[in-house]
């Protein structure tokens, strides 16, 4: 409640905050205006040349389609393209901005059009959740959350004095760190269902056409989490063991048992030390997410590679980099917040 009061108390804002807020509002207004005046879809589609129109009409009659109509709506800017397939391919591209439609077949407009199109595709717009940036973000975030929780238990197991638990956790960590993630993904996605006679897609209803992707996503999430858990376990273990022995002794002298000591004293103090390496692990997972293409899931890297292959345009990596940077920026920010929260006492 206090933070809310602080935020709503505009008069007492710092000058820099006020300026930032003003910029933010202005940008927002500009975006709203630009979004309102941008050309409509019909307007853009209507720009196709007569030849192209003819091809589109022909398509309506036959099974095989020859023209792909692309329409990408990116808040303030529109991109529309018509491309016929085959050896005699024809492409017409248009960019719609601020109430006007520009031809984007060459020059600057072409680059702008490509950027809009590539960004749109990498973000996985107009697709199911298991695609592009949405897939990358979802998979990475869930993996890290499950990985850290699993890692805490594995780390506690590994430093436990109970032989069986200790051996099991040690073995687990050794196994998952000692084998490549791609192979683990294959084993979980292909071998395990093979051995136990089920399919990942069976988890979802038979009529669900996205079941394949959803099943693959579950398998990928399991593989990534199990793997990340092993890496996080080592991070957590190192953090826990970096806590002064005196803390255990003080807790024991005060009558706390082992779970209390861990949950009240040791783990809260080690979290701050875990954050930087966990942030690294997060970035590793972010990069590794492209491995899921092996099981039919398409992430940012895969989209950009595919675009590169089919269009040969190296420009595609610019939006890819920007998207990755924004994701990393956002999550680094969150990690910093958590770190600050746990280090107020320093």
């Amino acid at each position: 409640m206090n933070t809310l009061k602080k935020i709503t108390d505009i008069k007492n804002w710092k000058k820099s905050t006020k300026i930032n807020a003003a910029i933010f509002v202005l940008v927002l207004i500009a975006v709203v205006i630009l979004a309102a005046v941008k050309p409509s879809e019909e307007m853009m589609i209507g720009r196709a040349s007569p030849e192209m129109q003819k091809l589109i009409e022909k398509d309506a009659q036959s099974t095989r389609k020859y023209v792909t109509v692309t329409y990408n709506n990116m808040i303030i800017i529109n991109f529309c393209s018509f491309s016929s397939s085959g050896a005699n391919e024809m492409t017409e591209r248009f960019v719609g901005f601020a109430g006007k439609v520009y031809s984007a077949d060459k020059g600057k407009a072409k680059v702008v059009g490509q950027m809009v199109n590539y960004t749109y595709r990498m973000l996985g717009c107009g697709e199911n959740v298991m695609h592009g940036a949405k897939l990358t973000i979802l998979l990475t975030t869930l993996t890290i959350i499950i990985g850290v929780v699993l890692g805490i238990f594995l780390a506690l197991g590994k430093i436990s004095k109970k032989k069986l638990i200790n051996k099991f956790c040690g073995g687990y960590i050794f196994f998952f760190r000692g084998t490549p993630l791609l192979i683990q993904l294959f084993v979980i996605y292909f071998s395990i269902p093979g051995i136990f006679g089920f399919a990942w897609r069976d988890l979802f209803s038979a009529g669900d056409t996205e079941a394949v992707y959803k099943g693959a996503f579950i398998a990928a999430l399991i593989a990534f989490s199990l793997n990340s858990g092993a890496y996080c376990a080592e991070i957590v273990r190192a953090a826990i063991q970096s806590i002064d022995r005196g803390q255990y002794e003080a807790a024991k002298a005060l009558g706390m048992n082992y779970p209390q000591t861990m949950s009240l004293i040791i783990i809260p103090q080690s979290i701050r030390r875990m954050i930087p390496p966990v942030c690294n692990e997060f970035i590793m997972v972010l990069k590794d997410a492209s491995l899921v293409f092996a099981i039919s899931l398409v992430d940012i890297t895969t989209v950009s590679k595919n675009i590169m292959t089919s269009e040969g345009s190296y420009l595609v990596f610019v939006p890819a980099l920007i998207i990755y940077l924004i994701i990393t920026m956002f999550f680094t920010f969150i990690f910093n917040k958590i770190e600050n929260r746990f280090s107020v006492y320093e």
Binding site: G246, Q247, E249, A250, F342, Y345, E346
Partner: peptide, 9 residues
Amino acid sequence: FQRFNLFPH
């Protein structure tokens, strides 16, 4: 304790 061992957090 000699080194107090207060819980810093």
